[in-house]
Amino acid sequence: MYNLIRRDLILQKKQLIFYVPFILLFIITGKNPALIYLLSSILIPFNAYAYDEKTQTNILLNSLPYTRKEIVTARYIGAIIFMIISMVITNLLLVIFGQSFTISQMAIGSGLFILFSATAFPLFYIIKPGHISTVLMITLIFLIFTGPSLYFYIVEQLPFITDIVNRLSDVTLYSSATVFVIFSYSISWLITIVIYQRKVF
């Protein structure tokens, strides 16, 4: 399992250096840290999929002594590990550049990343190779630009939702969000295992 996760780093070792200036760009332009956490977490696991959508790669992985379950599970555990690493690096950069960040921003960033992964990972095995990365990138960029205004729109138009959210204590809010995120990720993991086990290479 560990070897499958380490493989992503070996594959991307040349790209890794470019990830730091990418994160820096967002820090310098003063984007919300929650957004930066989300974006920096996405880099490694989603680039890894660019390799894995090739049939050849799947033939290789499945010819080695791994089970299909392990291959999928490594993907899901790896994404969390890379997320944590990216957040640590992002925090370091934020500190270096004298910008502040809060725990709740970290929670929102990681929560969004996990939800995004939970949606995207099964799709990687359903949608035809070659299309999925483009689809996801466009979706993500679209969300980044329209997301905040969409959020404010909802807040204005649907005051009762904000009302409920406001009435909940922070503890209830965060713990229910956490449960929801973990639940989605687990379901997604199980679905991907089922899909991957049926694949033909």
């Binding site: 390799y51 050849q56 033939i59 290789l60 010819s63 002594p65 791994y66």
Partner: peptide
Amino acid sequence: IKERIGFVYDSNVFY
């Protein structure tokens, strides 16, 4: 099983 098999395919399956 796979531990004991060595495989060679016609196309390059390596990155």
